[in-house]
Design a protein around this nucleic acid. Sequence first.
DNA 1: GGTTTATGCGAGTCATAACTCGCAAAAGAG
DNA 2: CTCTTTTGCGAGTTATGACTCGCATAAACC
Lengths: 213, 213
Amino acid sequence: MSTEDGAKAPIRRRERGERRMAQIVEAAAVVLVERGYENANTNLIAAQAGISPGSLYQFFRNKEEIARAVARNYAAIFAEALDQAFLIEIADLPVEAMVDRIVDTLIAVNVAHPALRTVFRGWDAPPGLAEAIRPLQEGIIDRVTMIVARRLPGLAEAERRVIATVTIEIFRGLVPLVLLSDTERRPVFTRELKRALTSYIAAAETDAALHVR
Amino acid sequence: MSTEDGAKAPIRRRERGERRMAQIVEAAAVVLVERGYENANTNLIAAQAGISPGSLYQFFRNKEEIARAVARNYAAIFAEALDQAFLIEIADLPVEAMVDRIVDTLIAVNVAHPALRTVFRGWDAPPGLAEAIRPLQEGIIDRVTMIVARRLPGLAEAERRVIATVTIEIFRGLVPLVLLSDTERRPVFTRELKRALTSYIAAAETDAALHVR
DNA sequence: GGTTTATGCGAGTCATAACTCGCAAAAGAG
DNA sequence: CTCTTTTGCGAGTTATGACTCGCATAAACC
């Protein structure tokens, strides 16, 4: 809401400006990712974008708003990847195949956009920013919960969410291992990531089947 | 080494001083954990310790050295917990019992010292500090690798380390879930944490048994 | 007691970095 | 070709916060 339009002057002509904003966001992402929010300074961002420090403030009210734009940008990229990974019919595949497809898709985005990880993890949060990410995370939990629901109809909703949450956290915990490893180790860790997810889900499913009987 | 004795003036009388240093470290931990390194200021640390800003520098050369002392302090606490959790004979227990004991011990320390998590995870690293933690992490990998070796003698060393690393990362990924949940959900997440570890280790073991034949 | 050394203070210094301001150039709109 | 509005600049302002300095007190050692 506060980011879409200024208070007094609605700023009309936006054609070149939009491009500049994109250019700034891109530059800011580079600087923010490699230095973190607190250690990144606006002069550096301006330099990276090839413009003057003053020009930054033509488009963004302050440093935090720049960071928010970066986060929003990557949130969009990631959301698209999620749409691709979580098609509904995927829940009907056997566990191995399902895990395979989802993991491959999500790893691919992270490889294509290395900044993704840093933006959503190791970032010292400009106070209101962590909460701007929250809805995205909730969305992921919802999707996974729906898949769990489809596979284990007998389970209580609360239990489903627990299983979904744990699955996601296993993934998030192991992703850095995959991304930070060199090209020869990467397939090994990817395989182990899949094994971890598969075995956990399988265990949860057999356990649930036993209890419901 | 550099922290034990100053360069020129070896500072003799240490009785009251040692207590002050401990007091400062304790105060610094509080401030650093709740604000992060960059957002914590030395005046606040001094205030929290109930002393003057100038007095900080009687004992520590700069802000980073204070942070290092905090990290060293918690590293010691954690190392002790590791000694307790990883007794050698634990490798001979069945998987469930082993996971049970290790997880319970480690969760207990983290509950007793909530700052532990923050110090080792969500912390914007004063540049040289991340590497000061590294040896501790290597130590953990070594211990787990040894257990894996005991349980799966037929496996190559490289494979063992991979399995150990993944196991640890699963743990680290799920610990926040346990620690940040309220008292009623905590046992649920603890159970799931154990399930995740148990199923992964079991899967790795059966898989290894098949391949080695 | 007298001397020395660690401890304690807090106002002041200094560097850093977010942000402003006045002014110039360029891009529509008429 | 004017007039308006957006874009662009970069030196200057200002707040913040790490760290110093000169000076007081308290504890050891003689």
